[in-house]
Amino acid sequence: MKNKGLTLSQKRSITGLLFILPWLIGFLVFYLRSLIQTVSFSLSRIEFAETGGYTSTFIGLENFRYALFEHADFNQILVNSLVDILIDVPFIIFFSLFIAILLNSRFKGRGLVRAIYFLPILLGSGAVAQTLELATQNIQGGAAAMVQEMTPASGVNMDIIIDVFLDLGLPIRLIDYVEGLVSRIYEIVRASSIQIVIFLAALQSISPALYEVSKIEGATTYETFWKITFPIVSPLILTNVVYTIVDSFVNSEVVRIAYETAFSSYNYGLSSAMSVLSTVMVCIVLTVICVMISKKTFYHN
């Protein structure tokens, strides 16, 4: 016998393993080993030798204690970026669902509008985005905007509007929230482009027959949304929440401070501790939110 008794399914499983082999090696060498190393770095003090090697001494949780209680601004930055994310996420989700629904209906020039809305995916990260951000601060163009600021004759004065809302007796917290969102609108639009695409794809997978039936039965648009659109889209809300949280954490200040600690002050142990802390934080937030949302999610198959 040539095959030494390997069954067909065994052979297939070997082929399958061959297909994922490159990834598996990469995962073990680059991810798993690095993760373990990061954790062990965070528990020790790293000292560099002249030759490029290093010695590490085990110091227990000292790095974590330092990062949380003694470092000048790490815990503040951590909490701030967490709060920012928690504030932004619900809005990004609603916003992207809303825009996806608008983009899903038929109208003239839909292709062009979609192309514009997908632009931020391409421009939303890295060097170009950093430079774009700089330009957004004066969205109306360099010096011209400065002149406008000095002579606030034209344009909308935010303060007046805020005062009007305050006089109406709306709670200050709500006004602050809305004001914060409005002032960060560009970032929010930019951060929600992938979510729009995901929702749009989900909306297009809904069979039109469902809408026809509900229309014949006399359902209003409002009812159709809550009874058809929302349940079918709901599994993707979870996906989008996860994506939003991860993505905004990657771009947050925490990453920058960990990076600087490692490569400017060469404190590898502390930097690793910061990374571990922020990752654990993200994981906790993700688990809590996932448990909360997945209870209310509807899976149709």
Binding site: L35, Q37, T38, F41, V250, A262, S272, T279
Partner: peptide, 16 residues
């Protein structure tokens, strides 16, 4: 690997 922020493993990668 999708969810894990890359900065968690940047130091070991650098050393590697």
């Amino acid at each position: 690997t999708i969810i894990l922020p890359t900065h968690t493993i940047m130091l070991p990668l650098y050393r590697h």
